[in-house]
Design a protein around this nucleic acid. Sequence first.
DNA 1: TAGCCTACGTTTAGGCCTAAACATAGCGGA
DNA 2: TCCGCTATGTTTAGGCCTAAACGTAGGCTA
Lengths: 177, 177
Amino acid sequence: MPEYPFDSTSALPAEAIAAAWRRELPGVPTSSIGVITPLWRVAKALADDRRRTLDRLGVDPGTLDLLSTLRRSGDPWTLTTRELAAQTLVTAGAISQRVARAERSGLVERAPSPVSRRAVAVTLTPAGHRLVEGVVGGLLAHEEGLVSALDPAERELLSSLLRRLAASVAGDGREDG
Amino acid sequence: MPEYPFDSTSALPAEAIAAAWRRELPGVPTSSIGVITPLWRVAKALADDRRRTLDRLGVDPGTLDLLSTLRRSGDPWTLTTRELAAQTLVTAGAISQRVARAERSGLVERAPSPVSRRAVAVTLTPAGHRLVEGVVGGLLAHEEGLVSALDPAERELLSSLLRRLAASVAGDGREDG
DNA sequence: TAGCCTACGTTTAGGCCTAAACATAGCGGA
DNA sequence: TCCGCTATGTTTAGGCCTAAACGTAGGCTA
């Protein structure tokens, strides 16, 4: 049996963590804990769930992210390293490694870009097409089930709160120099 | 200059991703994308921000999580590997590695547990105390600023939606066997 | 045509994680 | 007392990431 990490429902409630800090180090500001802790727990639970689901389907999350981005981009299913990095939110170095892994597995091919001679064009192979097309529908259907605990109005509300928070975090923390 | 990943605000909106799937593979269910995509983007933005903040303070996120959990537990600042795994939501193997790293840095010590002979008691050293106490206040103050884009009522709402979602994800995805 | 700058990719070092295989410790029954 | 089962930790293989160093391409200018 695989060794699962503990799940978020059995973890200490965020409010207990905040209370412990106030008891141990009076004066530390604890109000962010109530939102950041549940956020990370959900994100981790979703990531764990996706990793296990994809494991059963024979692909890893980084590779599926790569194949999905190419597949979604439409005919001719080709993007440069730079475009892939921008759409998947990881560094160019990470893309380089993902592409190398996927290329070893025969899922994508690298070729000099027709547009710019220093760019590299990454293209889905037939095997890559088959894999992503065979997996994406099932994955999305599964995740649809996970979020169905919230009704459509609640999902919209959650989504909009998250987008506002994202704007705040991205705006801060970066713009010094 | 470090190579930053692209930030979430410049990324493709979740709705554009869903529309691309509907165009490319009609029939795939796309309604989960609107909530899962923003959720992961915020989580990643927060994780990136925390990593960089802690980097300036000379500690890594995994180590701070370990030291914080011990510090919060109160006198005598000792927990077993198992308790640490339960509270930090990572596997026992990950805890073992974190503790080994922190021990090499002189921040914690391992000793046989007085309670059970097969348990290992992990305790904060004076250097560990100094580090966590010197860092936690600043980190929480910084993150307080990040979430201040939402007013208290909105934070409470977000928090409660996230907790409901966490319960759904943890309940599903695991209980087969 | 050399010098410089920027854009684009890749590689490497090292942190971090999970899953799985291993070890050991204690418990409990036959 | 031997066997088996469970609890607890550690180790290893391998995925995944960032930061930083490194190549190399093209453009621009003197």
